[in-house]
Amino acid sequence: MKSVLFLILRRIGTVLLTLFLVSMVVFSLSSLLPGDAAQQLLGQSATPEAVAALREVLGLDKPGHLRYLDWLRGLIVGDPGISLANDLPVAQLVAERLPRSLLLAGIAALVSVPLALTLGIASAMYGGTRVDRFLNTLTLTMVAIPEFLVATTLVLVFAVKLNWVSALSYAPPGASFGQFIAAYALPVLTLFFVLVAQMARMSRAAVLDQLSQPYVEMAVLKGASLPRVVLRHALPNAIGPIANAVALSLSYLLGGVIIVEVIFNYPGIASLMVDSVANRDMPLLQTCAMIFCAAYLLLVLIADICAIVSNPKLRT
C-alpha cells in the first residue's frame, strides 16, 4: 500500500514538473513575437513615447526571465494579467467561459465513453470476425474525417433540411430541458462522432493485446466461455491500457472543442483562445494554452493512477 501511494505521488510530481516545463515552452514560444505587443496595440501611428509608456505598463521593458517569473506567479495565484484586446482581467474572461466548455466536453465524454468502450471491447472479443472487420474499417474512416465536415453535415441535415434544431447552440441560463437538448444536440453529436471512433480503436487494441497473452489461452483450455475469458481474465489486466486510451482520446476532445465552438458560435474557452490568436492577445492566449495543457496532463495522470491501482504487482 505504501508503495502505491509513493508511486502515485511520484507520478503527480512528474506531472507538476512537466507542467512547469510546459509553462516555459508556452511562455517562450509566445514571446517569439516579432514586433512588439505595445506597438501592435497602439498601431503604427503612435508616438514612441506612448509606446514606451505602454511597454512599461505591460512590463515589456523587463528582461525575459523576470517577465516569465511574474507571469508564472500570476498564473499560480490566479491572476494571469489583463487581456490586451478587451482590457478585462484574463481571469474574469476565463472564469466566464471555462465552465461552458467543461459542460460541453463533459456531456460529450459522458455519451461517448460507454459506447466507445462497449464497441472496442466487443470488437476485440470477436476479433477477426466480420463484425470486427467492419467496425475496424468504419472507425478507421471516421478518425480520418475532419470535425468540420461532420459539423457542417449535421447542420445541413438537422438544422437546414429537417429544421429540428437550431444551428446556434448556446442555451441561455434558465432554458427548458427541450431547449437545452436542442441547443446541445449538434455540438455534442459532432464531438461524439470524432471521439467514439478514436476511443473504440484504442480500447480494442488494448484488449486484443491482452487476448494474445498465454494466460488467455490457458483460460480457454480450462473450458471458460468467451465472455468469461474476456470479461474476467483479459479485462482486469487491460484496465491500465484502456484508461490510457480513454485519456488520450479525451485529449483529442480538447482539439475537437476548438472547431465545434467556432462552428456553432459557442462561447467557450476554445473560441476565446482562437480570438486571442487572431488578436495576438498574448496574456489571454498563454492562459488558455496552459488550461488546455493542464487538462491534458490531468487526464493522463488519472489514467496512470488507474493503471497503478489496478496492477497487483504494485498494489500488494
Binding site: V25, L285, A289
Partner: peptide, 24 residues
C-alpha cells in the same frame, strides 16, 4: 526526453495556435 515530454503535453492544435500567434 523530458523536453519532448513537455512538448507533447501540449495538445497539437494548442501548440500550433501558440506558434501561429507568435510567428504568423
Amino acid at each position: 526526453s523530458r523536453f519532448m515530454d513537455a512538448l507533447s503535453a501540449i495538445p497539437g492544435k494548442i501548440l500550433a495556435l501558440v506558434m501561429i500567434a507568435a510567428l504568423g
